[in-house]
Simulated scan of single mutants.
Amino acid sequence: MTVFDDEFPAVANLDPALLEALRRAAADAADDGVQFYVNSGWRSPEYQARLLREAIAKYGSKEEAARWVATPDTSPHVSGDAVDIGPSDATAWLSRHGAQYGLCQIYKNEPWHYELRAGAVERGCPRMYADPTQDPRMRQ
């Protein structure tokens, strides 16, 4: 699905300011022949909990899974404040141009994960965390 596919909750339930920034960026990227796909956007708490259970099974511990998947209470996907974009040419475009729209990569280990940082338009994106375990928002 693209950032223009409102019939999908993963897009329709994103924060309106994030969605608007994504749509402006996607329209400009299209001029460069790049299309944004939403690999994951808004997630229900139940779906986030399932992703976390699967990550714990895959990585063998809650601590290691936390490098990749947040809890339903802390995930910016559940609040509609994060989006995972693909393919790689779209993330490469965003890494070069995203700050113009306030769209910032948050984690070094997740080049697909973007969130809105309004101050980025004037000051650039903030320094990235190595992974979600370094993000104070993820601590409960």
Results as ranks from 00 to 15, higher is better:
Met1Asp: 10
Asp6His: 13
Asp6Phe: 13
Phe8Asn: 14
Ala10Lys: 12
Ala12Pro: 06
Asp15His: 13
Asp15Arg: 11
Asp15Pro: 06
Leu19Asp: 09
Leu19His: 11
Leu19Pro: 04
Ala21Ser: 14
Leu22Gln: 08
Arg24Cys: 03
Ala25Asp: 05
Ala26Glu: 05
Ala27Phe: 10
Asp31Trp: 00
Gly33Ile: 01
Arg43Cys: 02
Arg43Leu: 14
Pro45Arg: 08
Glu46Val: 12
Gln48Asp: 07
Ala49Tyr: 07
Arg50Lys: 15
Ala55Ser: 08
Ala57Cys: 00
Ala57Tyr: 04
Lys62Gln: 14
Lys62Asn: 14
Ala65Ile: 03
Ala65Thr: 08
Arg67Ala: 07
Val69Phe: 04
Val69Gly: 01
Ala70Met: 13
Ala70Leu: 12
Thr71Ile: 01
Asp73Gly: 06
Asp73Arg: 11
Asp73Gln: 14
Asp73Ile: 01
Ser79Lys: 14
Gly80Met: 11
Gly80Tyr: 09
Gly80Ile: 07
Ala82Arg: 01
Ile85Phe: 04
Thr91Gly: 03
Ala92Trp: 12
Trp93Tyr: 15
Leu94Gln: 10
Arg96Leu: 10
His97Thr: 05
Gly98Tyr: 06
Leu103Ala: 02
Tyr107Gly: 00
Lys108Met: 10
Asn109His: 09
Glu110Val: 00
Trp112Met: 13
His113Asn: 07
Glu115His: 10
Leu116Pro: 03
Ala118Phe: 13
Ala120Leu: 05
Val121Gln: 05
Glu122Tyr: 10
Cys125Pro: 05
Ala130Phe: 07
Ala130Gln: 14
Asp131His: 05
Asp135Leu: 02
Arg137Ala: 12
Met138Asn: 15
